[in-house]
Design a binder for these strands. Structure first.
Lengths: 340, 340
DNA sequence: CTGTTAGCGCATTCAG
DNA sequence: CTGAATGCGCTAACAG
């Protein structure tokens, strides 16, 4: 590949194909009629000279960057990664291209990352699990198309794509009840921080209501507040054991805590699922490889990414769009035992 | 909404501070002397009007984008995520900002992702585990500052940042030997694809040489070729068991395969570490939470990211730079048992 | 349909 | 040291 010498511009291909630069611009943008022969000539020249329009010039002249900012909270997260994959796939067909940033679950970092995205003049925004204030979010919404994934914001219901945590949690708990478990402990997600409160609180509610529906009054002694991190799952086991109230199953608000709990049980010599059954939430890739493989709840991450992408693209084109509440699915594996 | 948010330009702050736009440009870029009073006036105006220079205009006029392209192979990878974190931290202090792309371990995707990076006119490139041909890489090197992480390319030794796989692997195997193990199996990484050959082959070599140094001739029956994926670790167990040659320990070329192997052993009722000891490589975050916690090798990912960032920045400034071979560290946990 | 012309916002000579 | 004048490469009116 004999690469670049001097940047070739629209001017070059205009001369090469014997037309004016505006005509070139027209065939390239496609939003104006051009005679077929000229069109072909231009295309040929573009191909021959391997022309690449200068995005800076385009952006400056048109006022659009043709890019969509995508903010994750952790590149390393398997769940967000799957969403990103969906977004990439969804945006691929359009003329827009994604611009990634990572908030690392820290408000200050996310704020700055958002600024750089804004500085790059993104035309729209997809925010995953954002921790920003709803005021800021409302404000952003006024400025450009916006889709918020995995967090519901009051006043922005239209733009939020969330999973039905309550229902999934209800089902997971019911699964345990159906298998004969009466004493089911729950390790919650973070509940105090108002920002991430949603998921944790909803999953807790689903757990409690499932018990009630089965005629069992939820016991506070069987509920331990976690933080969504492995470490908290590990600690939760100690807490539960200390409290002394027996249980035959544990439902953790996510797989990471379930993993932590698994280790805690292992250290105590408690077998899974022989002594205690375990269920997680999220279906981290590795959960299928735990010993035993973990029963958990899978969110259709990739689809969610696709939907989010489609929604922004529609907004960008002024088309109507809708974001339904997506439902998660229980993945049954060997970490749950049927008892009598 | 657009009323109050009229884009403010350099022109606005020029008027506001009573100087010309060139003076404004000077104090902002800092590469030219400006009288202190004027400087202050400009800064004040910038602050007051909350001025943000238009990157497109800057890029178009200067020919630089002030951005560094960063290509990963999988946003979801914990290892690469840690490297990205290091890169972000390393680039933060400079005026450059990172632009991310994901090659998803697929050459075609990586190629396209690289193109979009190039279209955005990145000033430099950091490639993680790239699968591109060395010819393309050589070519890129001619066009801009370049750093390749986790892959060594002939002719580009200067620009590659790699970990000493051989040494780490040698140490891991020696650790097993020191604990009394004589029959040590090895699940290799991918060996056939020339692109990712390095890591897998080097780890295999380290394993073999450690055995030889201990006076043990490596047995082909105890080596199974894997693909770096969990699934292959699972299958490897079946293969090993079928071959019938006994072993008391397994060294997998990465944690994912170790996890797969762990499940395979579990399914066969073989206990870890009581019956078989297990060692991985990479120290995935979750490895510390496996049951039992996995002994493995940790690569200083974040530091590597920092070094990569520093190296590109130096290149960008025409300064000299050097990329040493970094060494990994054995993390001892409960998955290895001392036998007699 | 198509060529000409004016900017987009900023960095950079080039004269003072 | 500083202001005025040129483009950077492209889009979008504006005439033909």
């Amino acid at each position: 590949m004999a690469a670049s010498k001097e940047r070739i511009t629209i001017q070059d291909i205009a001369e090469q194909s014997g037309v004016s630069i505006s005509t070139v611009s027209r065939v390239l943008s496609g939003n104006a009629g051009v005679t077929e022969p000229k069109r072909q000539a231009v295309l040929a020249a573009v191909d021959k000279l391997d022309y690449r329009p200068n995005l800076f010039a385009q952006g400056l002249a048109s006022g659009q960057s043709m890019s969509i900012g995508v903010m994750t909270q952790n590149f390393g997260s398997a769940f967000y990664d799957a969403i990103l994959r969906g977004i990439i796939a969804g945006v691929e067909k359009s003329n827009y291209s994604p611009l990634f940033a990572d908030g690392r679950w820290r408000t200050d970092i996310e704020r700055r990352a958002l600024q750089t995205l804004l500085n790059r003049r993104v035309d729209a925004l997809i925010l995953l699990g954002t921790q920003l204030d709803s005021d800021d979010l409302l404000d952003l919404k006024k400025q450009m198309p916006l889709v918020i994934v995995s967090r519901s914001v009051a006043g922005l219901e239209q733009n939020c794509l969330v999973v039905d945590n309550y229902k999934a949690s209800f089902q997971a708990t019911t699964h345990l009840l159906d298998r004969g478990h009466q004493h089911i402990a729950h390790i919650t997600g973070a509940l105090s921080e108002s920002n991430v409160l949603r998921d944790g609180a909803q999953r807790l509610a689903g757990y409690q209501d499932a018990l009630r529906k089965a005629g069992i009054e939820p016991s506070p002694k069987l509920v331990v507040e976690g933080s969504f991190r492995s470490q908290s799952g590990l600690l939760a086991i100690e807490t539960l054991l200390t409290r002394g109230k027996p249980f035959s199953a544990i439902f953790a608000a996510n797989d990471q805590m379930a993993t932590g709990a698994r280790l805690g049980l292992y250290r105590r010599g408690i077998r899974v699922p022989d002594d205690v059954s375990l269920i997680g939430f999220d279906d981290q890739p590795h959960s299928a490889y735990m010993t035993p493989p973990l029963t958990t709840v899978r969110q259709p991450a990739e689809e969610m990414g696709l939907m989010a992408a489609q929604a922004v693209l529609n907004q960008l084109q002024g088309k109507p769009f809708a974001l339904p509440m997506v439902s998660a699915e229980l993945i049954v594996r060997e970490s749950v035992k049927h008892i009598y």
